[in-house]
Amino acid sequence: MTSLETLISLLPTLMKGLVVTLEVFLLGSVVAAVLAFIAGLMRLSKFRIVRFLAAFYVEFFRGTSLLIQLFWIFYVLPFFGLDLSALTAGVLALGLNYGAYGSEVVRSAILSVPRGQTEAAIALNMSPVLRFRRIILPQAWPLMIPPFGNLFIELLKGTSLVSLITLSDLTFQAMSLRTTVSKLEIPIFALLLIIYFVIAYAVTLVMRALEKKATVGRA
């Protein structure tokens, strides 16, 4: 077999890893987006204690490394009786970490909606929920999309760390192939970089389409 054929024969193994990577990426993104909204809104609360709790969460997760958080959740929490699977630990760590970054995006987008919009909604006797859903969010949303796009790409890159907690993602599969076909290790890792690049590019395209949709009919 030529080395190209060998490389092609390794593709199915990498594809198995790709499925795991995409799974961790999608689940992590959902958790991160939800946490970003919760923490972002909490930071704008009227109550000091709520704002403080959210700020604590954000500063804590932004102040330490993703890798340390991941290892802590996977290796230390079991000592406290919380035994998480590698997948849960990975999704949780990615979600908590990028949720903290995302909350700043949500917060600043909401703050950039002019104050008059809130006042007008109050004058029209809208309930706080209606006010947020119909007036504030539709104006803040387009501002959130580009920074969220960047965060999702960071999250995608972060998924490679789950290979270090035994989860068989793309990076993990490449590492294990490296030991079986050692003379192809450099092409395998070059291919791996290209695969990540293609996924990231796809994420960029999706976010661009979302942005276009969100700004339809607007200047």
């Binding site: 790409i153 995608l156 890159k157 972060g158 998924t159 490679s160 760390l161 290979s163 270090l164 990076t171 490449a174 590492m175 490296r178 290790e185 450099i186 890792f189 070059a190 791996l192 970089l193 990540y196 690049f197 990231a200 590019y201 960029t204």
Partner: peptide, 19 residues
């Protein structure tokens, strides 16, 4: 710039380590 920014540092480190 695009390529380096959108691929994981961990994989880049492994790549340099092998190369």
């Amino acid at each position: 710039i695009e390529f380096v920014r959108s691929t994981p540092l961990l994989v880049q480190l492994f790549f340099l380590y092998l190369a």
